[in-house]
Nucleic acid binder design. Structure first.
Lengths: 140, 140, 140, 140
DNA sequence: GTGGTCTAGACCACG
DNA sequence: GTGGTCTAGACCACT
């Protein structure tokens, strides 16, 4: 218990989760996205534990249920494995492509590209911006 | 009267707006996105009129207030001009980049790229998919 | 008729009324305000005729009824005198203060000053801006 | 529960919102203006909570959607922050000037000054009246 | 319990 | 006939 608390605390501090409470994006979605980004940029690695629901909620100053929902969604997408004994563990190796993920990707990204196009952003600029983001994940 | 009705009807049909009523994305957001995509892919051109809120609501089978909200958001983003005399008109030429649109773009796209990265999608694949979408807009 | 049309045309051109059709401010209000501003800045003088309702509507490209409403409001406030024979004539000499105009002025201006205050505009700045506007009217 | 109700009630009463139901100014605009005036005159301070939309609607005797619209407009103008956890909070410290607020200010105030000028109000009188309003905000 | 969304119906200002 | 406003009631997501 005691040791777990310390570890949770350290990880909780290291995570540096930043929630925008006035955002229209639900807090649980923001948390989920930032954990996925943490996996992508290497600050969260395969096998590492996430802070407990309780600890995370305390660190960020949000409700237990909100953290719980974020974790459950991550578990449903195989980003983490939730085990009563060891808590929530990163499972990056198993996040291989879903069969219909390509469709979801296109659906998610199409409206963003459409707006960028309408606002005059050129293909090179879009590609460059995306490569910048991707490179940061790759280097980590 | 008669001719106007036909024109409204044709525009309504030509728009081919497809709402997914079971989606978690609000109807007004879906409508807004599809109109932006319509501007991007050339099915809606500078100066063309959108159906009236009532007509559009009837065409899609939703409430006029929902259409009204979508139109108001498009107006706030300068995608359309709501002119008291002639209704809602496409304003694509003036949708130049906002000063802080680059930040918004990065915020919108980062979580999508992060998830794609985690799911093993490679940079070439991401770039290719985005170019495909962009090309369709450009050709139109 | 013929001469009146020419005069109306010239005045209509000289007025340089600029309507923002996408503004939330009704067209008739914009027209009324611009005529009052025209009286204030000296481009419309005591005894001068306004273009006929028909001419004004044609010049601006708006509905007859809209011009009619603006003129009627100006007449109700004694800014113009509408006479069937000579048309609408500026009546600046008789626009003396209404008994309860002070209250109306305070009501109109209070929310604007409140917002300016909240946005950090200082008293000197507000006063200076207002004096600038006033001076232009006075010089004319 | 009980205490929260009392607090809500007191805030609702303290606000002293006065809606003129026969005014041509929309209720949501009147509410928005009075909240801005409340921030200006110090009756609403940075960090204080506004009543919930439901509570405010009940207090004033209007529909909650009308309150919602007023709050949304205040949020869009950064006068309040709508935080999912704690409701709507005054954000006066961050209401610094927008880049184009000067233009908006001039546009808002010009027709009022023009009318005052035409009605014979002198510059000293206008300045004095505005200073009176401003002083009340400053003293608070 | 909060705000967000959607529907519905009514009235009005505007053009 | 148009959009804007207001009311009303319902359900849901979020916390």
């Amino acid at each position: 218990m005691y040791r777990t608390d310390i570890i949770d605390y350290l990880i909780g501090v290291l995570m540096l989760v930043k929630i925008d409470f006035s955002s229209e994006i639900p807090i649980y979605t923001q948390l989920k996205q930032q954990i996925i980004e943490g996996i992508a940029d290497g600050s969260l690695n395969e096998g590492e534990s996430l802070p407990s629901v309780r600890q995370m909620a305390e660190d960020i100053g949000i409700n237990l249920h909100t953290v719980n929902k974020a974790y459950a969604l991550l578990r449903d997408d195989n980003f983490i494995i939730m085990d009563r004994r060891v808590g929530s563990v990163i499972n990056s190796k198993h996040n291989m492509k879903l069969e219909d993920y390509d469709d979801k990707f296109a659906e998610d990204i199409k409206p963003i590209i459409a707006e960028a196009f309408c606002r005059g952003m050129r293909e090179e600029e879009i590609t460059r911006k995306i490569q910048e983001i991707y490179k940061k994940f790759l280097e980590a």
